[in-house]
Amino acid sequence: MHEEKLIYKIRDNFFPVAGLLATVVSLGVLFVLIIDVFKDGYMRLNLQFLTSYPSRIPEKAGILSAWVGTVWIMVLTAFLIFPIGVASGIYLEEYAKPGKIKDFLEINISNLAGVPSIIYGLLGLQIFVYFFKMDRSVLAGALTLSLVVLPIVIVATREALKAVPLSLREASFALGANKLQTVVFQVLPSAFSGILSGVILAMSRAIGETAPLITIGALTYIAFLPTSPFTSEFPFITFQGLKDYFTVLPIQIFNWVSRPQKAFHSNAAAGIIILLVISLFINFLAIYLRIKFEKYMRRR
């Protein structure tokens, strides 16, 4: 009788105790990870690290080509995924009529979201690098990464559009606005911060992607920068850099982790600190925008 009560007591307290424990342990692992990389890498964090090319001598090596490459790829990816992702989301949410075609598009996007990123690397290698002869260029890298994160933007755009109330659309239609005017002038501005949050979330995913870029052949040792887009002569801008070879921060980190020497591991940890700070910042920005969007929608 007494034992039975004890069993009940353990049983009824299982989820509150185990749940709290599991949550604390998971977040604890995150905490330990951050402490660990910080401990390993903080002493390499200095200006020299940011302004040097990789080198055979660990103390002289830096991430200049890596972070510049990351900036190139990120800016380009943002420009590619924003219009295409948002347009696809608008079509599926506002225009597509329920039926076979819409179902097919939905299953397809949901599947693409689950395709391993390395497969996109194989696609990029054959299509962009070889077929379109882009070589292992910045452009080929950005196009490949865009395909990886495009489903995130499409899904987020649809969610944001779904949150816009019907009454707003009705008000616009009742005034004799057509669908395009209603979408462009009323629905999109209302959904904007939600959509932006999705694009930024996609960026936070893209910045850490390594495998697809390795697969298209992005080099791990680069001691030069892509041609700067700014020129002193008219028209003051050049796209020459798109054709240049590149590396990115996560690839540089991977390269250093793969070496046996401990000094390179410190470099990797320092690179990780920078990568983590940027990707967490981007992620928080996305969450902040999403919360702002949800609040705004509740006010309506």
Binding site: A171, F173, L175, G176, P189, S190
Partner: peptide, 19 residues
Amino acid sequence: IISLRKKVGMVFQKPNPFP
């Protein structure tokens, strides 16, 4: 439909101003 709706205006149950 556009000119019909221009000619026939509508006011809804719940006020629905644009944001």
